[in-house]
């Protein structure tokens, strides 16, 4: 790359994409709101409703994860092959989760 050694480089700087930047800040706002909601749930829903609490937390976490991966990591706008190449292997995580839950129940039964 001979031209890489040139001292003066003419760069065409484009103006900021207002719509895109606004969307990014909106995503951040959504993430913060969900986090605040998680706090509210943590301190208002009593610990007796353990299952309800856990399910609310898991749902909110997955929503947050979807926003981070989709918008911040830009996966939503990638080619479909790429999206599926990343999402399909997640099956292994689900598999591990199910297997370990099953194992955990077995351990509880033994004790």
């Amino acid at each position: 790359m001979a031209h890489a050694h040139q001292e003066t480089v003419h760069v065409n700087v484009l103006p900021p994409d207002r719509a895109k930047i606004k969307k990014l800040w909106m995503t951040a706002l959504i993430l913060l709101i969900i986090t605040i909601l998680e706090f509210i749930v943590a301190f208002t829903v009593p610990h007796e409703y353990k299952d309800l609490r856990v399910w609310i937390f898991i749902t909110m976490t997955i929503v947050k994860a979807a926003y981070i991966v989709g918008e911040f990591m830009h996966l939503r706008y990638e080619v479909k092959v790429l999206i599926w190449s990343i999402l399909i292997p997640m099956i292994f995580i689900v598999w591990m989760l199910v297997a370990f839950l099953y194992e955990g129940m077995a351990i509880s039964n033994v004790r």
């Binding site: 760069v11 484009l14 900021p16 990014l24 995503t27 951040a28 706090f39 911040f72």
Partner: peptide, 26 residues
């Protein structure tokens, strides 16, 4: 909660850096 806030904010500034990079805005 404060730590979570810090990390989310730094994620936003990162994505704004990426956006600026697309525009060649050093």
């Amino acid at each position: 909660g404060i730590m979570t806030f810090i990390l989310i904010m730094s994620s936003v500034t990162m994505v704004l850096a990426v956006e600026a990079g697309h525009r060649m805005d050093r």
